[in-house]
C-alpha cells in the first residue's frame, strides 16, 4: 500500500459567518493525479489555498508527506509546487530573473538551478522571451512561466488551480504529458479544473465538491456507476444540482 503524500482530515475554513470548506477529508497517494471538480464558489480554491499556506484552516488538519501544513509550514512548502488560478507575476522582472528568484527561494544549488531553468525554458518554448519583462507577457505565456516555476525545484507534490486556462492546445497537451510523467515517477498532483474532458482523461481519482463538502469521490468509473452510468458531466450536474434544479428534473421525468 503506497502511503499518501497529501492527507486532508476534516479540513474546514470559515470566513466570519460563511463556511467555505466544511470538514472535508481525502488523501492523494504518490503516483496519483487527483482531480478537484466543483461549481464556482464550491470551495476548491479555498481548499488549495489552505494546503499551500495562503489561508489558515479554522478546523481539521492537512499533512504533506507527513508535514503538518500549519505546524510545519516551511517543511511542507519546500516539497510542493503551486500554480494559482491567476498567473500574477512580477511585471518588472524578466522571466529569467523570476525563475532565478524562485530557485533561490527554494535554496537550489547554482548549477542545478541554471540547468533546470534551461530545460524548462526549452520545454515550454520560452527561450526567446526569457530576457523580456513579464509585464509584457500574454496570459498564456505567464501561465507557462508559472508552470516553469512550479516545476523548477522538482517537488513531490503539485497543486494546480485551473492550470490549463490560457494555454494554447499545444501547451495544454504538453502539460498533460508532463503531469502524467510526474505521476509515473511517484509525484502526487492535486488539480482543480472545470473542464470535464481533462478531468476524465487525466485524473486517476476525482472529488466533486459542492458548498464546501465533498459530494462525490472515486475513479471516473466509480463516479459514473454511482450516478447511473451517465457521463462524468451528468454525474457532476446531478451531484451539484440545487434543490430547485432537482425538483424541476423530477417534474420533467414525471411528465
Amino acid at each position: 500500500m503506497v502511503s499518501p503524500l497529501i492527507e486532508v482530515d476534516q479540513l474546514s475554513k470559515r470566513f466570519e459567518t460563511t463556511v467555505a470548506v466544511d470538514r472535508i477529508s481525502f488523501s492523494v497517494r504518490a503516483g496519483e493525479i487527483f482531480g478537484f471538480l466543483g461549481p464556482n464558489g464550491a470551495g476548491k480554491t479555498t481548499t488549495i489555498k489552505m494546503l499551500t499556506g495562503l489561508l489558515r484552516p479554522t478546523g481539521g488538519s492537512a499533512r504533506l508527506d507527513g508535514y503538518d501544513v500549519t505546524r510545519q509550514p516551511l517543511q511542507a512548502k519546500r516539497i510542493f509546487g503551486y500554480v494559482p488560478d491567476e498567473p500574477a507575476l512580477y511585471g518588472k522582472l524578466t522571466a529569467l530573473e523570476f525563475l532565478n528568484f524562485i530557485g533561490d527561494v527554494y535554496r537550489m544549488k547554482a548549477d542545478a538551478k541554471a540547468r533546470r531553468i534551461r530545460e524548462l525554458l526549452a520545454l515550454f518554448d520560452l527561450q526567446d522571451d526569457a530576457g523580456s519583462l513579464l509585464g509584457g507577457f500574454s496570459h498564456g505565456m505567464k501561465q507557462k512561466v508559472m508552470l516553469c516555476s512550479a516545476l523548477l525545484h522538482q517537488p513531490k507534490i503539485y497543486f494546480l488551480d485551473e492550470p490549463t486556462v490560457g494555454l494554447d492546445p499545444r501547451s495544454a497537451k504538453l502539460l498533460k504529458n508532463i503531469l502524467r510523467g510526474i505521476a509515473e515517477s511517484g509525484g502526487a498532483i492535486l488539480m482543480s479544473t472545470h473542464i470535464m474532458e481533462i478531468a476524465q482523461a487525466l485524473c486517476d481519482r476525482i472529488a466533486i465538491v459542492d458548498k464546501g463538502h465533498i459530494v462525490g469521490l472515486g475513479t471516473v468509473a466509480e463516479l459514473r456507476s454511482s450516478g447511473g452510468q451517465g457521463s462524468l458531466e451528468e454525474v457532476f450536474l446531478t451531484l451539484t444540482a440545487t434543490d430547485e434544479e432537482r425538483r424541476l428534473a423530477a417534474l420533467a421525468n414525471s411528465v
Binding site: 530573473e97 532565478n100 530557485g103 533561490d104 527561494v105 534551461r118 530576457g131 519583462l133
Partner: peptide, 29 residues
C-alpha cells in the same frame, strides 16, 4: 507590449539566501 529583449543565455548565477533573493527582486523592481 514593449519590444521583446530576444534570446538570452541562461548562465549559472550564484545561489542566494531566500531573503537576499527577495531583496534583490525588490531592488530590480
Amino acid at each position: 507590449v514593449p519590444k521583446r529583449a530576444g534570446r538570452v543565455r541562461v548562465r549559472k548565477q550564484l545561489a542566494q539566501l531566500p531573503w537576499i533573493a527577495l531583496l534583490q527582486k525588490d531592488v530590480w523592481v
